[in-house]
């Protein structure tokens, strides 16, 4: 159990750092502060974790050192093409309820909205579809419990059902917030006026 959790944490730090480096080259100390800012400090890292993760990312070819150390001896890192592909794969795949504590989803969305070039609504929908598939599976299990069936088992199923439902509702909420923020950005950017008659929107799911 502890091993699995440690594995999850290390994998998520890897992807988190890659997401931050997608914004541009940075060094470990700065990355740590950025990570805390992006995830609301719900999941604080220490500098040692950051540097050991950067070492492993460099070993695996996902980042490279960007130039010489600065006057304080700090080394900046830059994401490679391989690293970018790894990051795209992470954002494109839903978080599994079985493999990871659910925090990973919140972390992933927090990073998705702050990483350039990520289609946040697609990340949300990918997760929603996966969570819904799980919810359908749980509901199918429920249909096999007869009405007078084992109460305890059906209550356990219900707890999983309600948890999955809560996650989907939260995803709906995230989607609405992201869509509203995008609309506000559009209206605050007069150099890109929306075509008055265009039926097709530029955004993924379009306008309201």
């Amino acid at each position: 159990m502890d091993t699995a959790y440690a594995y999850f944490v290390s994998m998520s730090i890897r992807h988190g750092l890659l997401a931050l480096l997608q914004r541009g080259p940075s060094h470990g100390y700065h990355l740590r502060a950025e990570f805390d800012a992006a995830t609301g400090a719900t999941w604080p890292l220490n500098v040692g974790q950051v540097y050991s993760t950067l070492d492993r990312l460099e070993r695996d070819g996902l980042v490279v050192q960007d130039g010489e150390p600065d006057s304080d001896g700090r080394i900046a890192y830059r994401i490679t093409d391989v690293g970018q592909a790894e990051l795209r794969g992470w954002f494109a795949s839903p978080v599994s309820a079985k493999s990871a504590p659910r925090d990973e989803l919140a972390i992933k969305l927090a990073l998705a909205v702050t990483t350039p070039g990520v289609d946040v609504l697609r990340v949300v929908q990918t997760q929603r579809t996966a969570t819904m598939a799980g919810l359908q599976e749980l509901t199918r299990l429920k249909t096999r419990v007869p009405d007078d069936g084992e109460l305890a088992w059906s209550l356990v199923l219900d707890s999983l059902v309600f948890r999955a439902e809560a996650e989907i509702r939260w995803l709906d909420h995230c989607e609405a917030r992201v869509a509203r923020a995008a609309a506000e950005r559009r209206s605050a950017a007069p150099e890109q006026p929306a075509p008055a008659t265009a039926p097709l929107p530029s955004g993924k799911w379009g306008r309201r």
Binding site: Q125, T126, R128, T129, A130, T131, M132, A133, L135, Q136, L138, T139, V161, F162, A164, E165, I168, R169, P201, W205, G206, R207, R208
Partner: peptide
């Protein structure tokens, strides 16, 4: 979502477009 989960298939509609199904 909890009600939709009783279906064999869930179609997600956004702004008049089917964006995904599960």
């Amino acid at each position: 979502a909890r009600h939709a989960a009783w279906a064999d298939r869930v179609v997600f509609l956004r702004d008049g477009v089917v964006v995904d199904q599960s």
